[in-house]
Computed example of a mutant assay.
Amino acid sequence: MAFDPHEMDDDDPGSKDGAGPQRKYTEFDCPECNANNPVDDPIADGAELRCNYCGEEFRAHLTDEGRLKLRLL
């Protein structure tokens, strides 16, 4: 049996469990101060977020690949 390194990639957003690119983010790192900010509910596309440490506000964008991008408001 041949070794396939791709079968061991558990962080792949298109993994075998059928989750596809719809990853649920329950925390974010502030792009301004690098503080980790946990949130109660998963972050939705278009959600407005505020850093609990520096107070900067961001709009969340979930890409087609399932990555979280934050834009300063």
Rank of each mutant, 00 (worst) to 15 (best):
Q22K: 14
T26R: 13
K24L: 15
K16Y: 11
D10P: 01
C51E: 14
E57V: 14
T63F: 03
N34D: 13
P31L: 13
T26V: 15
D64F: 03
G55Y: 04
A60E: 04
C30D: 11
R23L: 15
Y25G: 04
Q22C: 08
V39L: 15
G14N: 14
D4T: 08
E7M: 09
E56V: 04
H6K: 14
A35M: 11
E27D: 06
Y25D: 09
G66P: 06
R59P: 07
M1P: 00
D40H: 09
A47F: 02
T63I: 00
D41L: 12
P21C: 06
H6T: 15
V39A: 09
G14Y: 14
N34F: 13
D29A: 03
L49M: 06
G66E: 08
N52Y: 03
L70W: 06
A47S: 05
N37V: 04
D64W: 05
Y53D: 09
P31A: 14
A44G: 01
P31I: 04
G14M: 13
D11A: 09
A44Q: 11
D17N: 08
P5Q: 12
P31E: 14
D17Y: 10
Y25H: 10
P5T: 05
P42M: 08
N36H: 10
D11G: 08
A2T: 01
L72H: 06
C54N: 10
E65Y: 04
C33S: 09
P21K: 10
R23I: 14
R23E: 15
P21Q: 09
D10N: 04
L49W: 07
H6C: 06
L62I: 11
L49T: 07
E56H: 07
P5K: 10
D11F: 13
